Amino acid sequence: MMNITLRITDRRDNSFEVEVPTDMGLNLMQVIRAYEFEPEGTVGVCGGVAMCSTCQCYIENDVKVPERKELEAATLSRLQHVKPNSRLGCQIPITKDLEGLEIALAPMI
């Protein structure tokens, strides 16, 4: 089992460094929920299928994440608070390549 370290800033501007296993098939949204960085029911409302905005986050450093797919881009195109570095956490699988990733959760609508 290999763990990576991520830095997550919640919607109250609190920053946390967390260790996350890479062998459990998790995505970033599930990590945010597991660590309870946001109240239950406010992250991943759609179940992780890129249809809501609750897991929108900003990639804060130059760690390479997978490219946006068409559905994610379409969902982001209709959201508020979107920036060039916006992503949906449910669309970013946890892999060893994310070591050192820093994200900030986007404001809720």
Rank of each mutant, 00 (worst) to 15 (best):
R12P: 04
L105A: 04
L71W: 13
M1P: 07
V82T: 11
R7G: 09
Q56S: 13
G47A: 05
E38C: 10
E60N: 14
I94F: 03
R12S: 11
I32N: 15
R7T: 14
Q80H: 05
V82Q: 01
P93D: 00
I59R: 07
M24F: 13
D62L: 02
Q56F: 05
M29H: 08
T22L: 05
T5E: 02
E40L: 06
T22Y: 00
D10A: 02
E60P: 07
A50H: 07
A73D: 12
I103K: 06
T75W: 02
A34R: 06
L98S: 01
I103D: 03
E99Q: 01
L101A: 04
F37M: 15
M1N: 10
F16M: 08
E40N: 09
E67P: 15
C57V: 14
R68E: 05
E67T: 04
G47H: 03
L105S: 14
C55V: 12
E36Y: 08
N14S: 12
L101G: 00
A73I: 12
I4C: 00
P93A: 01
I8D: 07
I94C: 13
Y58L: 02
R68V: 11
Y58E: 03
T22K: 00
E70N: 04
R87M: 12
V63E: 09
N85A: 06
G100I: 11
I109L: 10
L6E: 04
Y58F: 04
A50F: 01
I32P: 04
I4Y: 00
L101W: 01
E67K: 12
K69T: 05
Q30Y: 15
G100R: 00
E70S: 12
N61M: 00
R7M: 07
E60I: 15
F37I: 07
I103N: 06
R68H: 02
V18A: 07
R87C: 02
A34G: 14
I94T: 13
A104P: 11
Q91W: 01
E17A: 12
M2G: 14
I32T: 06
H81N: 14
I8R: 15
C46A: 09
C55N: 14
Q80N: 11
K96N: 10
N61W: 04
R12N: 15
I109H: 12
T95R: 12
L26C: 02
I92D: 01
T9G: 01
S15D: 12
D97E: 11
V49C: 13
V43T: 08
S86N: 02
K96L: 03
T54M: 03
C90M: 10
T5N: 03
R68L: 10
G44T: 03
P66Y: 00
L26N: 04
M24A: 13
A50C: 13
E67W: 13
L98C: 04
T42E: 08
Y35A: 14
Y35R: 08
I94H: 05
K64W: 09
E40C: 10
D23M: 15
L76K: 05
E70M: 10
N61G: 02
T5L: 01
G41Q: 12
E72L: 03
K69Y: 07
V82L: 04
T75H: 03
T9Y: 10
H81P: 00
R78V: 14
P39D: 06
T5M: 05
M108Y: 09
L71F: 12
G100T: 05
C46F: 15
K83M: 15
H81Q: 11
L98G: 00
Q80A: 13
A73K: 10
R11C: 06
L76P: 04
